[in-house]
Computed example of a mutant assay.
Amino acid sequence: MTITNKQSGTNVHEVAEGIYRINTPVAIEGAGGFSFNQYLIVDDESLLFHTGPRRMFPLVREAVASVLPAEQLRYIAFSHVEADECGSLNEWLAVAPQSSPLCGAVAAMVSISDLADRPPRPLADAERLSLGKHAVRWLDTPHLPHAWECGFLMEERTSTLLCGDLFTQGGADLPPITESDILEPSEAFRHEMDYFSHTRNAGVLLAKLASTNPTTLACMHGSAWRGDGAKLLRALADSLSL
């Protein structure tokens, strides 16, 4: 793990081949420690998943620059429209002049075509995009865990599911990647601060994600996780059905 900003504690760690977790721990009043993660896929057409909140942009940019020049980014991607997902989207588009927003078709239609300073590259459900050695596939997951436009990216070469707000873990001092259980702590966090929409389709959508058989789950908050991702996603479906 490389600390890129001593004051904030922002750090970078390679969680799968060519995929880097950028993490900034924070203290949130009344909620204790928390963290924000972005994931950088380094390739011929490099991709950043999640931008971080707008005010965190200098920290994330500094972290990206420790791996590759920020202006080389080709895609600025995110799961859904929310400040920590795409709050600094336009700042990234300005820094990386060849980049485009990358999101699902619904997000492009209802928000990003208007909010972004450049037109988005929308992805249909199950659409595949080659980055070079890596390739990502977009998976629509409306309202899972929240937002109509929600979806995730599956990186096929490393079997890494960029799973956004799923398995959100509280705490600011967690390992970059773990093989320990994250379902129990993430469910404890959900019960305290329920951020799920509780869509009727949760079980079907989680089965869809499980069918990709991920071996790394790139969580937006807390540790990334390594193991049998399909089994863990099915366990989350069981927990949500209780």
Rank of each mutant, 00 (worst) to 15 (best):
W225G: 14
I28R: 10
G87R: 10
S180Q: 12
D125Y: 09
F152Q: 13
S159D: 09
V42D: 02
N37F: 08
E184T: 14
V42C: 06
P119C: 00
G170C: 12
H134C: 07
Y39C: 07
N90I: 05
T178V: 08
S197A: 06
A135R: 04
C163S: 00
E91V: 00
T216Y: 04
T212Q: 12
V60L: 11
R21M: 10
D181Q: 07
A218R: 14
P69S: 01
N5Y: 03
I177D: 09
E85L: 13
E149C: 05
G227P: 11
E45W: 03
E71C: 01
L59G: 01
H191V: 11
P214G: 05
L209P: 13
L131Y: 09
S113V: 00
G18F: 00
A124G: 10
E187M: 15
S66N: 04
E184M: 12
I22V: 05
S88H: 09
S99E: 00
L47T: 04
R137T: 14
I22F: 04
P25L: 02
S159K: 14
A124N: 11
G222Q: 06
D165Q: 01
G18H: 01
R137F: 04
N37M: 09
L129E: 11
E17F: 11
F196L: 14
L47D: 02
V26Y: 08
